[in-house]
Design a protein around this nucleic acid. Structure first.
Lengths: 217, 217, 217, 217
DNA sequence: CATGAATGAGAGTTCATTCAT
DNA sequence: AATGAATGAACTCTCATTCAT
């Protein structure tokens, strides 16, 4: 398969990739079609050729980001039977995915702070799916008496929201730590450590009896 | 002090108030000077007369929002001596403040998802102050052996981030619940209930021995 | 009344005037906002400031043109009592108006060749009013037995349409005559002569008994 | 000659046909190459392959439209000897041709309201030919003493212009009649009736002695 | 202090046209 | 002959900001 000069798929992918970076860095409004085109080394008109308009591109970007994480979480979560293991898998997969795709958290947070105003149906449903996943794990655990008093929505934000914030605020936390030495902003915590910590704390929140921790393969 | 037709302070206040609403609803870029002027019933040029430029107005808005909550939290927190009571006060005050000023959470979340790129010094420091407050409570509690293993930054986001998200996503959660009945999105939880729940879970996270809960006056 | 630097009415008038010229010369689509602004010596944004968008400006232009001729015709027509005199007044007034406002005919013809596709209500009604005027004259004449067999719509186009065409095709007719000497394209007929001829022929069409021609004062 | 997948003539014809429809409906500028290609089910690039550019296509369309009517009129006109019969043939042929090719009138009117600015030589000459035809009939009739005082250009527009306008304004006239019942806009006159009426009135205009009307075969 | 008029620098989008296959 | 990809030049419209009154 030789590299072609005119490869629609490659061009589309380039656009999505660069748009994702720029949208997550600067937000929807502050990202211009010119910015994206320049970043891609592609003519501006191509954006409209493939995605009709800026909103269409944005939807495509979000769709890509959300469906990718959804399948990733679903796939890896299949491995275990216990709700606790599923919970751990959920947290770790989300963390590792975000580490590799650092654009998602900021896109997501931005969308969640807009809430309702301009959220396209497709994105809304993708976001619901991810929540449904955790919700089911929690419900299962509660039925089996493993988890206590789990309000899924709040737990969801305590896990996912916190991880997102830890990622988007990384530069900010670093700067704050340098300015105020006595402040512990977890500025050199790795995502793995963070996921670990959150998992530990979540177990405490759900009052899980601490026996053998059943990690995934 | 009679109501004047030309009352600088009143005009400035009107501008700040409406700008806060609009910035939080639509974000910085999507809010135009025209929108704000129309909402205030004030001439557009006044915005620039009083605040130099859009960025200046935005800073003023954020400053107002952040300093208010900071003093509120500091004041109410003074009342007690125990770190646990301080923690409770912190959570409840933040919750009740946000309920009365529903624009803050969305402004804050948006700022946090931008991280670092265009954050003015003043806002950065205000946000740090709020975090420092909780950080000190946690450190104190840990020194007294009341709290275990408290990573302040992560705990901070689990509390503040989650409350913010619960507020900004309110309409979204309602819509999701209507669409998918089996989903529990906490759609009619009050802020007080949410604060309660978060406080309870935070205690579990920090492995607080469950004796007498010492509430503030 | 000193000439002001910032005179809204003057600016609006300049825009309308130049837009009328350009729209009639090049048509709606081929006339750009830049063209108009440059012609006016005004900033392009002013067009949108005063007329919201290009279509709005176009409507304003047509409205101006149509209402002007309507009042002109109505006013001058009042002078006489006989339908024949009214008919003559109608023809002569229309002719002289078009001579002074040579943009109208081309705007009108263009609109009539689009028919129905994008005609704003306002213009439609203005055009109807002008036709109604002639229609009433003809009906009156017919009732009095002065005019015979007058289909108002067809007569209307034979008069108004022809005058419009004679005006818009003036340069074309001149060029044709120069190219083909034996061709009589009426290339140096004045509008007055044309109106005369049309009036004479219209009388023949309506089988008016040729006694004393009752001209207006 | 079997139907080929790659049939240059067929493709060219399809393009001309659809371009004619679209140009006459929306005008030159408002018709895009994409529109035409879509309407034809042909690739956009083919338009440029066959007609070099949009202006070239437009010329081809107009050429097609004009040459067709010219031959039609010339042919049918040959049948008779008397100028009056020729006149009648001219009117009737033009009317029936327009009825079958309803795109011509609007294309023509549009071109005439532009006058001179961007008219290609070829179209200019085609239009001249049609006029020459009528002009000769009138001159002949005048020499034979059958027609009186015929200014060919004005008569031409009174006939051809009026028929064109009656066709392009058909939807408009219908709408006006529905809105204002007392208005007679000839909204359900057939083209034949219109041609009849115009012929009758033209005879009056030219002061033709009313004996035996010599109709063509 | 307040306002409406004015401006310049883009932003998104369209479109005729060309290129590579 | 035919197509989809690609481009550059416009074009409409917006908006922060300034000016004159």
């Amino acid at each position: 398969m030789p590299k072609q000069k005119r490869d629609a798929e490659a061009t589309k992918a380039k656009i999505i990739k660069n748009a994702m970076i720029l949208f997550s860095q600067n937000g929807y409004d502050a990202t211009t079609a010119d910015d994206i085109a320049t970043a891609c080394g592609v003519n501006k008109a191509m954006i409209f050729y493939y995605y009709k308009n800026k909103a269409g591109l944005y939807e495509a970007v979000m769709s890509e980001a959300l469906s990718a994480i959804h399948t990733e979480v679903i796939t890896s979560e299949k491995c275990c039977v216990s709700p606790l293991a599923d919970l751990e898998a959920f947290i770790r997969t989300y963390a590792s995915y975000c580490e590799q795709n650092p654009y998602l958290p900021s896109l997501l947070l931005r969308e969640l702070s807009n809430s309702g105003t301009h959220l396209p149906e497709m994105m809304f449903s993708s976001m619901r799916q991810l929540f449904t996943l955790l919700s089911e794990i929690l419900t299962a655990g509660q039925k089996q008496g493993i988890f206590q008093n789990a309000q899924p929505m709040i737990i969801y934000f305590m896990i996912v929201g916190t991880m997102n914030l830890m990622i988007t605020t990384k530069p900010l936390r670093l700067k704050a730590a340098q300015l105020q030495e006595e402040l512990d902003t977890c500025s050199d915590c790795s995502m793995e450590e963070i996921a670990d910590y959150i998992f530990t704390k979540t177990k405490l929140m759900l009052e899980v009896k601490n026996e053998t921790s059943t990690t995934c393969a």
